[in-house]
Design a binder for these strands. Structure first.
Lengths: 254, 254
DNA sequence: AATGGCCATTGCATGTAGTGCAACGAGATC
DNA sequence: GATCTCGTTGCACTACATGCAATGGCCATT
């Protein structure tokens, strides 16, 4: 691992908390100001940080552009999107698509509810991993050892009384999810919001993504939402099929 | 400037074009494979790149998270958002908020149209800088020298017959915009889409952001859209006022 | 099964390039 | 106008990144 790069990259999460001046960055990094200056300059040239008029640094524009390009290049998202839109067209609720990556679950696509009451979530935002239906689906399929290790090191915030309280309960829930092949979040994240989700599988049967439909109590009850399960599963299976059928990962135009 | 960090960061735009394996990355960087490996590992540890099962690398999750945190920490966005929502409530069309940064103009907030026909745009996406109303507003206020220099090095893609064809025409357009204090894009980016925008100014009168209302021809004609100009300007001025009134970041007790 | 080729990985010797120091300068404060 | 703070620069030193060559795993070919 490269020390210099490591230091430079450590600046990014630091600036994510808010703008900081040179001295502050140097302190947090534990390096001399001149060193911090050179790192910041390099980050600046690549557009990852921006220097405002008061000489403080904050995260820069290219970060957004990179994130955009990244999400748009995901095969899964491309394949799934039209299916998600179709599902939204049928039920009208918010539809999410998520993937697992290095201990995090994050949304990679979203179709907004057609109802006025909308959920707060954003593409790229890490998911509440211990309660979200899509997170359960993705984690349930991890290899035993990795799943246990991850569950142990997670935090279990009690968003509501129905949140998973600890690793043991969570692992049990994951076992259930793996058995039944679908998952719910009934008010485990926000009191009034329910979700029902299904896994998307690759050609080898491994879960590569997960999708869910979410709606607040005030629009449909949990029972009504559950009646959508077959539809959600069909949609997920359709995406799985298309994803497995077309396996053109060698799509290089160099 | 740090060579090592420079190389590492050069990997990111490279991977933005699509996944690449170690050899490919090393080639593109012009370094030995072992060097590329160490850089990739460092990026990986910070979550900026992800290593897929086939050993190819692509951009990673934390990139999204960083971009999210960055956009949510922008004062301008926070202040403006409620105004944008209110404006959308009154006219129903898509509302955009954009800022200029190092030669790029990018959207930092967006309120979706309530009509079924929606524009394609995303928060964080770079704006078509030679045609968008918000881009004209932001560039029109740049210092003379910087404006000229930027105009000269831009590309002028002819999205439609009404796109700015070259630097001279663009600079002339910017002069008009600066004079009148508002801007339009009448089918300069996509044939059927019109925009009308107004600048948001800081306490010193400099343009710090720009906003616009966009709607396709099929919903309202360009003439009808222009009748919204006073409303757009009022909204922009209201945001300017609030932004100038509250100056919390500038005055800090030591 | 055995072989050959491809690619990721590792340990190490070399010298390049990143580091901290100290001095300088600009801007603000009193 | 004096003093303090903070960003900036040039430089000597050596820590650290680099490329090489060798190893090992994986896959395809025979």
């Amino acid at each position: 691992m490269s020390q210099t790069v490591d230091r430079a990259l450590s600046i990014l999460p630091l600036l994510a908390q808010g703008p900081a001046d040179l001295g502050r960055v140097a302190d947090r990094l534990g390096v001399h100001k001149s060193t911090a200056l050179r790192l910041l300059r390099t980050l600046h040239e690549h557009g990852l940080v921006y220097r405002q008029q008061d000489n403080r640094y904050r995260l820069g524009a290219r970060l957004f552009a990179l994130a955009q390009e990244a999400v748009e290049n995901l095969d899964m998202r491309e394949i799934a999107h039209s299916h998600l839109v179709a599902l939204n067209g049928q039920c009208g609720h918010t539809v999410h698509l998520a993937v697992y990556e290095d201990g995090e679950v994050l949304y990679i696509d979203k179709v907004e509810s057609r109802y006025p009451v909308r959920m707060y979530s954003r593409i790229g935002k890490p998911v509440a991993i211990t309660v979200a239906a899509v997170a359960k689906l993705l984690l349930a399929d991890l290899p035993e050892a990795e799943r246990r290790a991850l569950a142990e090191r997670l935090d279990y915030p009690m968003y509501t009384p129905r949140s998973s309280p600890n690793a043991a309960a969570f692992l049990k829930e994951l076992a259930t999810v793996r058995e039944q092949g679908w998952a719910t979040d009934l008010g485990g994240h926000e009191e009034s919001i329910n979700c029902v989700g299904a896994p998307i599988r690759g050609a080898d049967g491994r879960v590569v993504a997960a999708m869910s439909v979410s709606a607040p109590n005030v629009v449909v009850t949990a029972e009504e939402l559950l009646t959508l399960l077959p539809l959600v599963r069909r949609t997920a299976d359709a995406i799985s099929g298309e994803y497995s059928g077309n396996t053109p990962p060698s799509k290089d135009a160099s």
